[in-house]
């Protein structure tokens, strides 16, 4: 029971990050491999604020603002000039941005991991199991954010414009949609979600280092692909699946050392059976 809860809350973290990958892919048709490092930036923002004696709420706020600014700046200066360039060039640029962010944080904060002290929220007994409150908080807030995002995309004018841009940029422009602005908004939303993820991540593993974003970034990317890259519900499903599987594997002594192998193995199996991912949409080739 507590494993399931931990798994779901880890899954919520993966899902939040996976949403950033999948939305950016859906709209800008690029894999933003620097997305994981935005989490790292967010985590350092939390770390610095708390070190400076700031309240946790302030840390959250600053983390979101800094991540959003970072995401938008990266998009404007690294990716926007490459619009229309070959996907490979964009991909390599994204990897370059990833290393750049890691190196900068290493210069500023040093390479050694630093402990972040977030007041423990303790545990509660639920259905006879001991569950950490931070898991519940992560799960609930994660679910609220995802529900909000789904509503935003479905109901608002900007959300609908995002759907239109993801399907056909040219046709979207002919509707009067400012495609560049929609891409910027998408990066901003993805980065805000990464900031939220970074806080939840720190609640589970209270330590920051420059490469902090790599592993959750890769796992969340895997989750996005499992769910079907470009699909918002897919990213949520993939993230939660991966989180639960990870925690279950870790709880079985025989499997524990192979947890990561199991996760990526799942990716391979799903790609073999259903290359577009669980909830991915088949796109008809345009004639």
């Amino acid at each position: 029971m507590s494993i399931l809860f931990d798994g779901l809350s880890l899954g919520a973290i993966y899902a939040l990050i996976a949403l950033g990958y999948t939305m950016v892919y859906g709209i800008a048709k690029m894999l933003n491999f620097a997305h994981g490092d935005i989490i790292m930036v967010g985590a350092y923002a939390v770390f610095v604020t708390l070190m400076g004696g700031g309240h946790i709420a302030l840390a959250i706020g600053l983390s979101v603002i800094i991540c959003v600014v970072m995401g938008v700046v990266v998009e404007k200066f690294a990716y926007k000039p490459l619009r229309g360039a070959s996907p490979l060039a964009v991909l390599i640029t994204a990897i370059g941005v990833s290393y750049l962010l890691q190196s900068i944080s290493q210069l500023v904060f040093g390479a050694e991991p630093k402990t972040v002290t977030i007041a423990s929220l303790g545990t509660v007994s639920l259905f006879g199991a001991t569950i950490s409150v931070s898991s519940i908080v992560t799960l609930v807030i994660g679910a609220v954010i995802m529900a909000g995002l789904t509503l935003f995309v479905k109901k608002t004018r900007t959300g609908r414009a995002m759907v239109a841009v993801s399907e056909d940029k040219g046709a979207a422009m002919l509707m009067g949609i400012n495609v560049n602005r929609i891409i910027t908004i998408t990066f901003a939303i993805g980065s805000a979600l990464a900031a939220a993820a970074s806080l939840f991540y720190l609640m589970q593993i209270p330590s920051v280092e420059p490469t902090l974003g790599s592993m959750p970034g890769i796992k969340a990317f895997t989750a996005a692909v499992i769910g079907g890259i470009g699909s918002i519900p897919g990213a949520m499903l993939g993230g939660v699946m991966l989180g639960v599987i990870e925690k279950i594997c870790l709880s079985v002594p025989v499997l524990a050392p192979y947890t990561t192998a199991v996760e990526f193995g799942l990716l391979i199996v799903i790609l073999l059976v259903r290359p577009i991912g669980l909830l991915g949409k088949k796109r008809r080739e345009k004639v």
């Binding site: 609908r160 414009a161 759907v163 239109a164 399907e167 040219g170 509707m175």
Partner: peptide, 17 residues
């Protein structure tokens, strides 16, 4: 180039962006 994944109604709403 209608939006294939949107409904007829949603396509028309897009036109009124």
């Amino acid at each position: 180039r209608v939006f294939q994944e949107l409904t007829v109604y949603e396509n028309l709403v897009m036109g009124a962006y």
